[in-house]
């Protein structure tokens, strides 16, 4: 990397990258409106919308009442009738209040109506643990929504993807749910200028490797990368795949990697049972990549409990770097 390319690599935080995407969308498309609780002058609970209200006014950056069900439904109705709403949940946990509109309406309207309508709706969900916010403000519920045909479910893990995937979601005619890990909001990274999209349904190989495949989502991608560096020093060459999209899942990238390495670890923050890793594992087990497995598949997911408050407990119930290291070492050394 020379000095010149370094200056070209503009860095933004994950939150800034999302804001930039929304800014571009608001500026370029009159139909785009932002809706959510305290996203106006407050700037959003995590300062993602920031000062956009000053630029676009309260008609385009709309504070909703604390009415998740109603607000989500308004967004669905608006999307059905010509607007392109970006609806922010203050915490992904609050989606539980709006599941009716997300699952029964947004996801199904197109199908129920025989394809005569579409719902170009984007919903943003600040997700994940690590903030000491306990059980009702720390969940990773992407698998809930990933289970619903009609929705697309994204989990960008970098500032670049956070922007690109939001813009891709706005281009998509169907409802797109974006889970943003709260710990990532302040993470900085290279973000290209201007308009670009990151494809939905396409995983990214963050680190090529030959000994085992780590499929990770969201925050876990960074933990997997940290683990992969340590593993490399030990002579274990891990391939890290950032799934990026939970639904539709990128079969080909995952299967090709497993065919190459023969070993698979899935790392995800949501509760392990019936989670994203279960789907990744089943996908591999059901495919021709099965014949390439040289060890059992390992899933590292959230513990079977709500996210606890105590910081040590909070850490203990979601996969951490040492957990990934243990699993990878055991796998690579044929101990599992």
């Amino acid at each position: 990397m020379n000095a010149m390319t370094k200056t070209e690599l503009r860095e933004l935080s994950y939150a800034e990258a999302i804001r930039e995407a929304m800014d571009i969308a608001l500026a370029s498309d009159e139909r785009v409106v932002l809706m959510g609780e305290d996203i106006g002058v407050y700037g959003g609970a995590f300062q993602v919308t920031g000062d956009l209200v000053e630029k676009y006014g309260t008609d385009r950056v709309m504070d909703t009442p604390i009415s998740e069900l109603g607000g989500a439904g308004v967004a669905v109705g608006a999307a059905l009738t010509g607007l392109k709403p970006i609806f922010e949940f203050q915490f992904s946990d609050f989606a539980a209040l709006a599941m009716e509109q997300i699952v029964n309406q947004a996801a199904k309207v197109r199908y129920m109506l025989g394809g005569s309508v579409s719902v170009p709706l984007v919903m943003r969900f600040p997700a994940g643990s690590g903030t000491g916010a306990a059980a009702q403000h720390s969940q990773s519920i992407e698998a809930w929504l990933g289970h619903v045909p009609g929705l697309k479910v994204l989990q960008p893990s970098t500032p670049e993807d956070a922007k690109g995937m939001l813009l891709a979601a706005l281009e998509d005619p169907d409802p797109v749910m974006i889970f943003e890990h709260k710990i990532l909001y302040k993470m900085k990274g290279h973000v290209p200028e201007g308009y670009y999209t990151t494809p939905i349904g396409k995983a990214a190989i963050r680190r090529p490797g030959k000994d085992l495949t780590i499929v990770a989502t969201s925050m876990m991608v960074h933990k997997a990368m940290a683990a992969a560096e340590t593993l490399a020093a030990e002579g274990i060459d891990a391939e890290v795949i950032d799934l990026r999209t939970v639904r539709p899942m990128d079969r080909e990238t995952v299967l090709a990697s497993v065919r190459k390495t023969g070993r698979l670890v899935c790392v995800y923050e949501g509760v392990k049972t019936l989670g994203v890793g279960a789907e990744v594992s089943a996908m591999v087990a059901e495919s021709d990549a099965f014949d390439f497995l040289d060890a059992p598949i390992v899933r590292l997911g959230g513990a079977e409990c709500p996210i606890p408050y105590n910081p040590e407990l909070e850490k203990a119930v979601v996969p951490q770097v040492p957990d990934i290291l243990d699993a990878a070492r055991n796998l690579a050394k044929g101990r599992i």
Partner: peptide
């Protein structure tokens, strides 16, 4: 099929009409 399901959607349609 959901009792009350259409209520917020109607509000959304009205929001579109007003915005557009």
């Amino acid at each position: 099929g959901i009792v009350g399901g259409g209520l917020p959607i109607a509000v959304g349609a009205a929001l579109s009409a007003k915005r557009l």
